[in-house]
Design a binder for these strands. Sequence first.
DNA 1: TGCCCGATTAACT
DNA 2: GTTAATCGGGCAA
Length: 187
Amino acid sequence: MAKRLTRSFFSRSVHEIAPELIGATLFVNGVGGRLVEVEAYHHTEPAAHSFHGPTERNAVMFGPPGFAYVYRSYGIHWCLNFVCEPKGSASAVLIRALQPIEGLAAMRRRRGVTDVRLLCSGPGRLCQALGITHRQNGLALDAPPFELFARKGAVDVVSGPRIGITKAAELPWRYGEKGSRFLSKPF
DNA sequence: TGCCCGATTAACT
DNA sequence: GTTAATCGGGCAA
């Protein structure tokens, strides 16, 4: 049985946690797969939602680590983050892509596409495929509907600039599995 | 209060 | 390559 990631796993620097999440497995109500792409955000750099301080939307980021922060992107999509570091540091890891393993039929139904590479390759697509909305905002990651397991064995992790941002775009805080066909974009 | 922009995606030309 | 969809936050007025 794979090791569950508990709250203590997230009580560290977001820069340690983010690359370790590559190869971990995430399921929401039994639907999910292997994480292949994430990005780190920290309140000290202007691309983070928490940079300007607490608001109603980002309140979860200012709470304890090990919880889900879900926000609406461009008024249309949902994006999932894992809150990291000691409470109040307001840092998080954006879950950008995963390799589907369980619940392919549910993913295809929710997404309206059949190509397995288009199911979860992107933060908005991933949330749609896993059924994640604002209802999951603030939920603990070590309790239903979430299941999160540490990776088994070595994973070839690469890093590069984050995607879709204009502020602090030079920081290489995007992490992914080298050569994965399920990335939102190649490194 | 109004305006602009954004951690996106899909459907265009 | 460009653009629409659509909404919360920051900031100027």
